[in-house]
């Protein structure tokens, strides 16, 4: 009897939490089929108009292009930094490793506005403010902790005796790294890179300090379209992003159990 009550209570609160997590996402999917008023619930019309217009909207397309470009380049930079940091921290001979680990994870702790203002302060004198270069460099720092954390965990699991086996049998350190260590870090690096890419695609706070008219990234564009010049096409865009993120995360979790590294 008591157990049954407990089960019912659990069921109710878990349902409420789940609803809380998913409600805004479902809402977006729902209203994306309503081209007239995206804030209307329940929707009063049904059509695919938002989706067809999505692929004709110049501003949105160029924002997507810019954000994907920035995301890719900054993820590549962050991947190198993450890889170097992880092998250096786990296996290198660096002084004050605890402090250095805080340095690498620091961008998660320091408020994004602080870093954002900092980037603005250093990029303005260089004439880089508002340029994709500035945003790319800034993103590479902000997203790197996600890669570093996964790679540190992965590198700690790696048995160094494999490197010795490689070297004794004729491999130079670089060759051993490229053929033995790197391939085994690759799954972790890829999942970290995908997560970082998603973070870069969604980065708003730091970017807003560096953006200018010609560098409107995707999240800034979305903000424009939901708050300033309201346009229902954004619902289709948001729906596509929701579904894409779900698919990517599902793959990552099924393949690599990424929750263990976060």
């Amino acid at each position: 009897m008591l157990a049954k009550v407990g089960k019912t209570v659990t069921f109710i609160y878990v349902t409420i939490i789940l609803l809380f997590i998913l409600a805004p996402l479902f809402m977006i999917l729902l209203v994306s089929f309503n081209p007239t008023n995206m804030f209307q619930f329940p929707p009063d019309t049904f059509s695919f108009q938002n989706y067809t217009q999505l692929f004709q909207d110049e501003r949105i397309l160029s924002s997507i292009g810019l954000s994907v470009f920035i995301g890719l380049v900054s993820t590549i930079i962050a991947s190198f930094i993450g890889l170097f940091a992880a092998v250096g921290l786990v296996r290198g001979k660096l002084p004050g490793k605890n402090l250095l680990e805080s340095l690498f994870l620091g961008p998660l702790i320091v408020p994004l506005v602080t870093t954002g203002i900092g980037f603005l302060l250093i990029f303005v004198p260089l004439g880089l403010a508002g340029s994709p270069t500035a945003i790319i460099l800034a993103h590479s720092v902000v997203i790197s902790p996600y890669i570093i954390r996964i790679l540190i965990a992965s590198m700690r699991q790696f048995d160094p005796v494999q490197e010795e086996a490689a070297i004794v049998h004729g491999a130079s350190p670089l060759y051993a790294f490229a053929t033995i260590v790197f391939p085994q870090l690759l799954p972790a690096l890829l999942s970290g890179a995908i997560l970082s890419f998603l973070v870069s695609l969604d980065e708003y706070t730091v970017t807003v300090f560096l953006t200018q008219a010609e560098t409107v990234t995707l999240p800034i564009q979305i903000y424009q379209l939901v708050s300033v010049d309201i346009n229902p096409v954004v619902t289709a865009l948001a729906s596509v992003m929701v579904i894409l993120a779900f698919v990517l995360i599902t793959i990552l979790e099924k393949r690599l159990q990424i929750h263990k590294y976060l």
């Binding site: 997590i21 996402l25 209203v31 619930f41 708003y204 979305i222 903000y223 599902t250």
Partner: peptide, 24 residues
């Protein structure tokens, strides 16, 4: 876990937009 992680890496801009509609 997948639901939790998905909502973690789901665009925050998009999620907040969703809340705008829900709370609107």
């Amino acid at each position: 876990l997948m639901i939790v992680i998905a909502s973690m890496f789901m665009s925050l801009t998009v999620r907040l937009f969703g809340w705008m509609i829900v709370l609107g």
